[in-house]
Simulated assay, not measured.
Amino acid sequence: MLGISGVQLGEIGGHGEKTYPWECCGLLLGTGDGGQARVLQVWPAANAWDASTAEMFERGGDEPIRDWQTQERRYTIAPEVMLAAQKTARDRHWRILGIYHSHPNHEAVPSECDRQWAWPEYYYLIVSVAEGVARESRCWQLDEQGQFQEVPLSVESGENA
């Protein structure tokens, strides 16, 4: 289970609406492990995906290259942003719990690309943004077989979960 406040979930949805029709992305900082975690800070990041980033990743699937190289279908977080978030988390005795991103005009369900690049220890919160409006948010984590399983979200009132 991933605990998150309604305010934090609203921040993520707002980020997705602001960046629409491109994917937004960011990090979830907090505490916990072993199936129980709590988000204490949402760390928005710029989507650093571009054509040169796409070249660094091996292309897979049947998607046209124009879809592969666009922020409407992909995201990445710059290494310096990951390092800054990791340092902040460590200084607060937290950790990076996972990553959030949006799916513009798609369901809040991981893509095959999401699965291929996912890290098993991370939570992946996806917000569906349809026609510029944040709709559904769902959370996922890889299982031992490398497949995504849905993780229940515990949405609490207040600023922090």
Score class of each variant (00 low, 15 high):
90 R>Q: 15
9 L>F: 07
135 R>G: 12
63 E>F: 03
25 C>F: 04
125 L>A: 06
39 V>L: 05
66 R>N: 15
132 G>D: 15
134 A>Y: 03
63 E>I: 11
159 E>A: 07
12 I>W: 03
56 M>H: 09
12 I>N: 03
45 A>R: 06
93 H>F: 10
74 R>Y: 06
8 Q>P: 04
160 N>P: 01
122 Y>D: 11
134 A>W: 02
142 L>K: 09
95 R>K: 12
126 I>K: 04
90 R>E: 13
71 Q>V: 01
75 Y>E: 06
113 C>G: 12
159 E>N: 08
111 S>K: 04
149 Q>E: 14
52 S>A: 11
24 C>Q: 08
108 A>N: 12
23 E>L: 07
107 E>L: 12
118 A>H: 03
87 K>N: 12
127 V>K: 00
111 S>R: 09
150 E>N: 05
142 L>V: 10
4 I>L: 06
116 Q>H: 13
96 I>Y: 08
26 G>I: 02
87 K>H: 13
78 A>F: 11
141 Q>R: 15
157 S>C: 09
141 Q>F: 00
108 A>R: 02
113 C>F: 14
124 Y>N: 04
115 R>Y: 09
59 R>Q: 10
79 P>T: 10
42 V>S: 03
111 S>G: 06
83 L>F: 10
123 Y>H: 13
3 G>K: 09
108 A>H: 07
151 V>S: 05
72 E>C: 12
155 V>G: 05
137 S>P: 09
72 E>T: 12
67 D>I: 07
79 P>R: 01
149 Q>V: 11
120 P>S: 14
31 T>M: 08
2 L>C: 07
141 Q>A: 13
10 G>E: 09
48 A>G: 11
143 D>M: 01
58 E>F: 09
157 S>E: 06
101 H>C: 09
40 L>V: 00
123 Y>R: 04
29 L>G: 02
95 R>N: 10
116 Q>A: 15
82 M>P: 02
127 V>A: 10
63 E>P: 07
38 R>D: 04
154 S>Q: 12
44 P>W: 01
87 K>I: 08
76 T>D: 07
67 D>G: 06
122 Y>K: 03
91 D>F: 04
83 L>I: 14
41 Q>G: 02
158 G>T: 12
98 G>P: 02
157 S>W: 00
139 C>Q: 04
146 G>A: 14
147 Q>S: 13
86 Q>C: 08
153 L>Q: 02
106 H>N: 15
89 A>L: 13
5 S>H: 03
110 P>K: 01
43 W>V: 00
1 M>G: 09
126 I>L: 14
93 H>C: 10
13 G>K: 01
109 V>P: 00
61 G>S: 12
8 Q>I: 00
118 A>M: 07
106 H>C: 02
145 Q>E: 15
5 S>D: 09
38 R>I: 03
54 A>C: 02
40 L>E: 13
156 E>C: 04
157 S>Y: 01
64 P>K: 08
111 S>T: 14
20 Y>C: 03
94 W>P: 00
21 P>S: 14
119 W>F: 04
20 Y>H: 12
